[in-house]
Design a protein around this nucleic acid. Structure first.
Lengths: 212, 212, 212, 212
DNA sequence: TCCTAAGCGAGACGGTACGTCTTGTCTTCCA
DNA sequence: TGGAAGACAAGACGTACCGTCTCGCTTAGGA
């Protein structure tokens, strides 16, 4: 069962380098990912058919289904790599330490999201208005929430008059951010990412400070 | 053109009795609304087909399309009445004046949402996990945002060192609320609506105050 | 379940005239039968796809499957009417009584088959060389065998030194006839139907007489 | 081009030992033949896929196509050896001269067929009811017809009031025999091969005699 | 005895047809 | 005569096979 939806499709047998997935397979998968992302920029995601994708990728129908469960699976896996970019950016940012604008920033790490959305604005916009945006937003929200919860629970451990569950706070801030992000994209990004992020932070910071 | 998506499909010609929608028509429409809501509680919204609905409502296929554009349209119109309940609750609440917990509450009016969601929790949960939740959430967000923007712009008009656009603030607060609301529903409402609302307000109030 | 493979798809509720199958349905079915027969004359039966048929008949895919189980079912039902022609011809011929060439002829009734095959030679040839000929031949064989068995068993009832089972004799004569028929068609009918039938009868008659 | 459908895939270069097909090749081919015959006894021939065959034979897909054009080709070549058995039996029988029951027998040589079918009854039955029977029957018919035509044309050459073409007579007798043979197999061979052959001969002999 | 080409397994791949499903339109019948 | 019933065209879906192909491995036969 060469199927997907399992984080590690390629076992990668440790030492030497094993038999890494068969180069053909890799090319096929990438072709399909590419074709889908291409198409998303051209037409609404939910109007894209499997046939469209395989025509674009020059791939047989059965090959598609040998690699992915369906259109959603393809998208999801495709977004994974974007998610990982995001994750990495966040990690790097965290490593830098609280160099600049106060503690809230390093907790929120929201800057990374706005910058990332800006860099991939075509994709983001297409996804949000095309019907398949939930994956993307959910992925983003998940990352953001996770990062936040980690920071917050650590803070709680060190004290603080905290009365609101960490999970709620994280959801609150994540939802607020995604909401602004969505609006910003829908409005064709009337501000640079730094500005919109600054707005977000000035709205979020008071809430965080009140928790202390 | 007997179609829908226009707020008032039945003109209702003023005085006497006009041509009041033909009682049969009314019954058919209600049957369809009812059938859909029924089905939503049984299976994921996006797995419900038009065939399911008309079977349940004992109605012919063409009849369905004579009244509604599609499944979405039926849902949307069905939710309209719920939206109106909500709207009315908000209006009443506003009229009461700032009786209780300070100004923020009356601006936010979030209590109404949590209470409403609690009252209709089966429907809300089904919708959110069933793929059709966007309508509901969007409807909610729209109402909430609208109310907020009205209040905020009024405030701005009267001064305040406002630097963040009203629209952004409204989106911020609305997104945060819907996010908490969603979490609360998904977690099977571990708190009463008053408590979760209180959490929301204590997170939101500092942001509002900082704007002043 | 409006499906086929049941002798009487149209219930035909006796008296008045009921609701006879919906004229549309009749037209659709006929269109499909026609399309298939058309196509059979153009290309090998087993190279014809369902898509070919419905394109030719201007019919939707699902409509096809609403009426027939598959390509075979369509063919089978289409041949039924041909089978009925044949059956009727045989009945008429039998009614005439033994007007001419002796008893054997009236028992064999083979003339009818050769004439029928001649009249429908395009179809027969296409079917035989196209891979779907078994239906046709089996149908023919069945009819022929049935007629024969009736005659023979009657004869047995009236005595005769019969030692070979009726079924065997019938199969023997039927197989011989179909074999000649097939050859005759494959050779592009080098003789008129009367001649080939005469050959068949002069080969078959001695066997029948020997049974007496 | 290592392909098949050419009677002699292994040229067998005369003297010494040449390049004797590579023992591996031989083993592979036999494995495939064996696998197919095995499978035929288990399920309908036309439901057997190439995948089934190569799984059973533990052979790679490409290997299959290196040796045979397709499933049909494999079957055909597999049946060749059976055909050769048959051919040889016929030859031997002929050589014996008219030892027993008169001339007709030696002309017809039908006994060989019934005996052969009886000996391979499992295969015959599976093939006939499984959709791939045509090969087998055609092969049989071809052999039978050929033998018959040889005898008959010889007879014609020596005179006789023959008016029916040899080819027709041969087809007639061959078809009749295959028809009885099929029936006999389908009925689970209710008689020993000698009996059914006797029936066939007593039906066929009068026709032959009438030709003289 | 080594070396090299062939045979081979494994299975990815493009392609094509299948039978199912759902949608929104269109025709026909009935009250 | 207008609403209900449901047949229909359209076309996407996920599955099943086919015949071709590209890989490495193994393995025999000629050097």
């Amino acid at each position: 069962m060469p199927h997907s939806s399992d984080g590690n499709p390629a076992p990668e047998s440790g030492s030497g380098d094993g038999r890494r997935v068969d180069r053909r397979v890799q090319r096929t998968r990438e072709g399909l990912h590419h074709a889908l992302l291409d198409l998303i920029l051209e037409k609404r995601y939910d109007k894209i058919t499997v046939q469209d994708i395989i025509d674009r990728a020059n791939v047989g129908r059965s090959t598609f289904y040998a690699h992915f469960l369906d259109k959603e699976d393809l998208l999801e896996q495709g977004l994974r790599q974007i998610g990982q970019q995001l994750h990495q950016s966040m990690a790097e940012r965290s490593d830098d330490g609280p160099e600049g604008g106060g503690e809230a920033d390093s907790i929120l790490n929201s800057h990374v999201f706005f910058v990332h959305a800006y860099a991939n604005r075509d994709l983001y916009r297409a996804m949000i208005s095309g019907g398949g945006g939930d994956f993307l937003l959910d992925t983003g929200r998940k990352h953001f929430t996770a990062g936040l919860e980690a920071h917050l629970s650590e803070r709680v451990a060190t004290g603080g008059k905290q009365e609101i569950p960490t999970a709620v706070v994280a959801r609150y801030l994540a939802g607020a951010m995604m909401s602004i992000l969505t609006w910003w994209l829908a409005e064709d990004m009337p501000y640079p990412p730094e500005t919109i992020n600054a707005m977000y932070e000035s709205l979020a910071r008071p809430s965080l400070e009140a928790l202390r």
